[in-house]
Design a protein around this nucleic acid. Structure first.
Lengths: 168, 168
DNA sequence: ATTTTATGTCAGCCTTGTTGACATTCCAAG
DNA sequence: CTTGGAATGTCAACAAGGCTGACATAAAAT
């Protein structure tokens, strides 16, 4: 969090041609496909989709999170998330506990089975990320993260930073 | 193409914790949302989706490309692409010419209206990419592209490289 | 000439996004 | 206390864009 503070002086008048920018755009497109490819394969076997993966990931990251909190992270409607959550709960991967302080809220947890799937998915995804990071070296990794952070919307960066706090 | 040649010696035994990798994964997730946000808004107004954007982008990149070539780039089924192409053709954004040498093929071109929309979309997307690149500086940009390339599947990297040739 | 292959189209299904209507719970104002 | 509004979660129905299967046509092979 220290190194990304503000627009600190590096407004080095860069000549960025449309070509350079377009390469970045296309790289982003093709890389994202690779990024999701391994989890997608695993999920397809079990009858789930990418939406299930996202839910599982962020429930694992913040056990006990509420549906509403999850909604603002995922940026979908509650109705859309609800469908996914319902199947995960029915299948025994996620547990939904009614809030004690506020009974309107549902707090979400992964069951053991849920943690097993989460582990399988994130292991596959980390494996690819690790290979890429190793291939290019630590400086490139820093640059990678800097650009991605600069590309996020403000509120997404907020969620990203809050998750980082917790994990660090 | 010169600087990315092979696994050249930088296999520097990196200690990559699961935490570091997960940060990369989450950065990728949140950043991709930002990456598509501006075009998505423009498209929604006109009744199109992200799939239309992808088709328009790559037709613009390779005018006269065939449906089959587009398919392998986009990585979807021809039936799925066909639905999108049909609406674009009906709406007069894309022109489909039957091949002269091989009459089975359809060659795809943007019409003037298609080029107008393409320009609107790519201008918005480049604007965000440019802002991000400027914010973080040229070294970070290099690292960004290196990681993304290392994350692509082999065949996607192939398409990426072929497009780069043409644009350079 | 007839079969096989390549390419593109049409029909129908599934996931996952959307909006609208609604039930429950909490809280604040009367 | 009760009543009206806000917050939260659920149910229903629809749209976009993936998918597979069946099929038409053109080219190539036998």
């Amino acid at each position: 969090m220290a190194e990304t503070s503000g627009t600190s002086g590096n407004e080095t008048l860069l000549f960025l041609t449309d070509d350079q920018l377009r390469k970045g755009i296309e790289a982003m497109f093709f890389a994202y496909r690779g990024f999701t490819a391994d989890p997608d394969r695993i999920l397809a076997d079990k009858g789930y989709g990418r939406a299930h993966h996202r839910a599982i990931h962020f429930i694992n990251r913040s056990p006990g999170t509420t549906v509403n909190n999850l909604l603002s992270i995922l940026g979908v409607t509650k109705q859309s998330l609800n469908r996914v959550l319902r199947t995960l709960i029915e299948d025994g991967l996620v547990e939904s506990r009614v809030g004690t302080r506020d009974k309107r809220e549902r707090h979400l947890f992964l069951t053991e089975a849920g943690e097993t799937l989460e582990s399988e998915l994130s292991t596959a995804q980390r494996k690819r990320m690790r290979a890429a990071f190793r291939q290019v070296g630590p400086d490139a990794v820093v640059g990678f993260r800097q650009v991605l952070e600069a590309m996020m919307d403000r509120d997404m960066h907020h969620h990203y930073a809050r998750l980082r706090e917790a994990g660090e």
